[in-house]
């Protein structure tokens, strides 16, 4: 059986909160979400576009980083993690705005995937006070994640239970999983699984432990080919990533980026790769990611 391209599950990844590099704050209002959730045919019919959204926090109002290697530049502390949770439940932006767009346009369900803040292992203070928590203690890293996830789930059930937005699951906050993260990832994912939620890893094609993604208790993984057109990774990486992902039941990241390492044609090649793989391989799934928040691709 061939998997129809239309059947491929597509998630769009959006940066949220502050970003110093682009000197802006991503609030995501309803009018910004609308062109991502619906598109218009030439005859005027409006059809669902993306129905799955991955929200990735960048920086807090204090300028501290939430995810990735950036979390090791100036890491987010407890007050920043709380700010992220609060951001998820602010009215007229983010998830709330998404729910509004779905309501207004009769979209029955929109899935939301939340990228978790990353607690970098090492001598990073998370919370001061009588019982300080530091990320050089594995238990403290795990507790920070547990507390935050619990708060999100509790508030989600109060705020969004009667809306079309559904919390699909959580996304690990780093592309790589070094040795120090393995236990925390396994335990955190196991716990999220027990709550009936998905666990997604946005990895690179050649990231360490990619092939062990199931052992790490992820329920899904999406690979980035590292092809951008202006770096040393050629088109062969793009196609090999597609084949590898298809053979191993993985998703792929489709990037539409701007900046010094991106050439203007890379997005077309990504689309071509997705179409080739999804039409040939039963198991292929695609997670779509825009590096910048411009829906330049039509799927």
């Amino acid at each position: 059986m061939q998997l129809e391209y239309a059947q491929v599950k597509k998630i769009i990844m959006l940066d949220t909160m502050s970003c110093f590099r682009r000197q802006r704050s991503f609030r995501w209002l309803a009018e910004e979400f609308e062109p991502l959730t619906l598109y218009s045919h030439e005859d005027g019919r409006r059809c669902p576009f993306f129905t799955e959204f991955l929200l990735a926090p960048q920086q807090s109002s204090r300028g501290r980083f939430y995810c990735g290697l950036y979390a090791g530049y100036d890491h987010a502390r407890k007050e920043d993690w709380s700010e992220w949770v609060d951001w998820l439940f602010m009215k007229e932006q983010g998830v709330h705005a998404l729910a509004t767009v779905a309501d207004l346009n009769g979209i029955q369900e929109i899935g939301v995937w939340l990228m978790l803040p990353y607690p970098p292992p090492g001598d990073y203070m998370y919370e001061q006070g009588k019982r300080p928590r530091r990320f050089n203690i594995q238990l403290h890293r795990l507790l920070a994640l547990h507390d935050t996830i619990e708060t999100v789930i509790e508030r989600w059930s109060r705020f969004y239970a009667r809306t079309p937005v559904r919390l699909r699951g959580f996304v690990w906050g780093r592309q790589g999983i070094p040795e120090a993260d393995v236990e925390v990832v396994e335990m955190c994912n196991e716990w999220i699984a027990s709550l009936g939620l998905e666990r997604l890893w946005m990895a690179n094609y050649r990231s360490n432990r990619v092939i062990e993604w199931r052992e790490l208790h992820f329920s899904a993984i999406a690979l980035f080919a590292n092809y951008t057109g202006r770096s040393e990774y050629g088109k062969d990486w793009l196609y090999n990533t597609g084949k590898f992902a298809a053979l191993n039941g993985m998703g792929i990241q489709v990037v539409n980026g701007r900046g010094v390492i991106y050439d203007p044609n890379h997005a077309d090649l990504y689309l071509e790769m997705v179409k080739n793989i999804s039409s040939r391989e039963e198991e292929a799934r695609s997670f779509t990611r825009f590096r910048i928040q411009r829906p330049l691709m039509c799927l």
């Binding site: 970098p120 001598d123 592309q175 790589g176 070094p178 040795e179 690179n204 050649r206 590292n226």
Partner: peptide
Amino acid sequence: NTLLHSDAYEMLNTLE
């Protein structure tokens, strides 16, 4: 863990 242990791919993605 004083340094950020990673790989070439992840590092490259942070370049910009």
